[in-house]
Design a protein around this nucleic acid. Structure first.
Lengths: 190, 190
DNA sequence: TGATAAAGTTAACGGTGTCTACAACGTATG
DNA sequence: CATACGTTGTAGACACCGTTAACTTTATCA
């Protein structure tokens, strides 16, 4: 035990805000229904405690979504950093994006939930992801409109992720990855 | 009055199921929060009455989503029928699709809500829309893979609709329509 | 007409978001 | 060290929600 903290429940949690966000995302990952009271119970705190750190349920949900966007951004950046000499095909980014949606479906749904559309921080985190894609598009295709390519790339990735989660497209994952590659090849050809 | 029905409240509503679905969609259109009890109140019926026609809240939501998909299909078919000699550019379908999402944001969000993913009827209505797009793709580009083009077209339309509603892309509608056209032109070129 | 099933009602249960009033704690100041 | 104060957590309440059970009204048909 490197941290011999006293384990008896103290009145002041110390870092409740972050703990609530983490616990809330955990609930989504486990498929449990998220509720303010349930997340408070999970952290071991009273039902009204979250209101010291969030104004409303939407407010904590926006914080969870923001966290999700930052995780997504980290995953995308790893792909970029792992690539050689800055040449990252957009489709590789798209596949990472889609796999993130597959691996965290509930969080992904929350990130694009319509009620949270006007939260400032969540919007900013989302915009950062967009900027990252735009940056790659500009580096990979210097001769083309970077903003347009980023828009098309994200729209394609998001749309295919949605349709895949939704089940309209097939269920076979290998086929699906190949289809994503084929679709992007058609768009970003030459 | 072509239907001289007695107006005093009768015990048997006559067509409660359809009335509930319609009223539920009306609530979404008006931006009101949808709840089972509220929709029952709006139709003038007791809170438990909906359970004679729907097994759960998810069940009626799925019915509302199915209704939405059929309306979307009707809108798309109108564009097809209005076109001359069967030549319908995919981008015109996409713009109709996106305008539908803009005009009915809450219903559109419900249609793609993750909790309803496994409802049979909703899935079928969704698949019919996909089949319609595929049909147009096959007619417009007989030399290309229709399923692939339909997938790409829908993914692009759905993705751009989401990003637009979300606000990441600009707010100017004219610009946005032009951007959709440009993006589709890049994809479906030649 | 009278039995039966369908379609509605009332009342209740536990859960939820949110608010108000109160208690415990950390900290800066005397 | 003592004490006042602002922060953080608690307890309790309210209205609303989804859902179920038990009951009543109505339509249908032998």
């Amino acid at each position: 035990m490197s941290t011999p903290t006293t384990e008896k429940p103290r009145h002041h949690h110390g870092n409740l805000r972050a703990a609530l966000v983490t616990a809330g995302i955990e609930m989504l990952e486990e498929g449990e229904p998220f509720s303010l009271r349930a997340v408070a119970r999970r952290v071991g705190v009273s039902q009204a405690a979250p209101y010291r750190h969030f104004r409303s349920k939407q407010d904590i949900e926006a914080a969870m979504a923001e966290h999700g966007f930052r995780e997504l951004q980290t995953a995308l950046r790893e792909v970029i950093d792992a690539a050689e000499a800055g040449r990252v095909p957009l489709v590789d980014l798209a596949l990472t994006y889609i796999h993130f949606a597959e691996d965290h479906p509930a969080l992904y749904a929350l990130m694009f939930g319509s009620e949270l559309a006007d939260d400032e921080d969540r919007r900013a985190a989302c915009a950062q992801v967009f900027a990252l894609i735009e940056e790659v598009a500009a580096a990979t295709h210097p001769d083309r409109d970077a903003h347009g390519m980023a828009t098309a790339g994200w729209a394609l990735a998001h749309g295919m992720a949605t349709l895949h989660l939704e089940g309209t497209l097939g269920r076979n994952d290998d086929d699906f990855d190949a289809r994503v590659r084929a679709t992007f090849a058609a768009v970003a050809a030459d």
